[in-house]
């Protein structure tokens, strides 16, 4: 076995614990040709992923099957991807709020494409199912709202229009070179336009099997919902005091 092959062998068990590009070897001090070419391919794939539109019709049956009522589809004020990327203000504001059933909901669930439609297509419904399985039976949950060309703060408008105490926004996180399907959950208590990022809690990197599992993400979210309801606020004042080891499946 050559020195190179021996080195490759030693890294193999470590690669099982991370997707990071470890043990790439060296050409002198530089990245070897194979690693450079792989990076170019991954960059091309990630840049393309940003522009793939969300397949809304494909998601609606799964959302309806959650048993929360017919899903409502909205759009932000950003008409297309090009404008969305340049105008975050338009991605935060809804084009309209028609069809939202105002009520005294404990929770609103908003699904936003964000920067990765793939993350939403693959992980939104299983994540919602895991959340619903852990919700307190006494909590009232509004019908799910699906929004396109949307950023996190659009949930403030939707949550307020619904009259929800707490809003969870499930959003596609920007595609990386190795992970193009990462989903995040942002929790905002007492949602209304003008809330700042310091008033939100975030659970990121939901993309099993490598990233956070649905169950672990849901457990953390439910812990934070309970905390927000008790404290009356979300954000930096609210800590995830549960240990990951306690809540991992």
């Amino acid at each position: 076995m050559s020195a190179d092959e021996l080195t490759t062998d030693l890294w193999a068990p470590l690669r099982a614990s991370t997707q990071a590009r470890i043990g790439l070897g060296r050409a002198g001090m530089s990245l070897p040709t194979s690693a450079v070419l792989e990076l170019q391919e991954a960059l091309a794939a990630a840049r393309d992923a940003v522009h793939v539109p969300l397949d809304v019709p494909a998601l609606l049956p799964g959302l309806a099957d959650l048993g929360l009522g017919e899903p409502i589809v909205l759009a932000s004020q950003a008409p297309d991807r090009s404008v969305y990327l340049r105008r975050p203000d338009l991605g935060r504001a809804p084009a309209g709020l028609d069809g939202l059933p105002a009520g005294d909901w404990d929770l609103a669930l908003v699904i936003a494409d964000g920067l990765s439609s793939k993350a939403v297509s693959e992980h939104a419904i299983p994540t919602l199912a895991a959340l619903l399985a852990g919700f307190d039976p006494s909590w009232t949950v509004a019908p799910p709202v699906l929004v396109t060309q949307a950023r996190v703060a659009i949930g403030d408008w939707i949550g307020q229009a619904l009259g929800a105490k707490t809003v969870l926004v499930l959003v596609g996180e920007r595609p990386g070179l190795s992970v193009a399907d990462s989903l995040g959950i942002y929790l905002t208590h007492a949602p209304k336009p003008g809330r700042t990022d310091a008033e939100r809690n975030c659970i990121s990197n939901i993309h099993p099997p490598e990233g956070l599992s649905y169950a672990a993400a849901a457990a953390t979210a439910i812990h934070l919902i309970r905390g927000a309801r008790a404290l009356g606020v979300s954000g930096v004042a609210l800590k995830d005091t549960g240990s990951i080891t306690e809540i991992a499946p």
């Binding site: 590009r21 530089s30 990197n205």
Partner: peptide, 22 residues
């Protein structure tokens, strides 16, 4: 610097460890 310029948590490209050596 990060392994292979690819931050697998934050989803962006920084420099590779190798870039600093070079």
């Amino acid at each position: 610097t990060v392994p292979g310029a690819d931050d697998v948590m934050l989803g962006y490209q920084s420099l590779a460890y190798h870039d600093a050596l070079v």
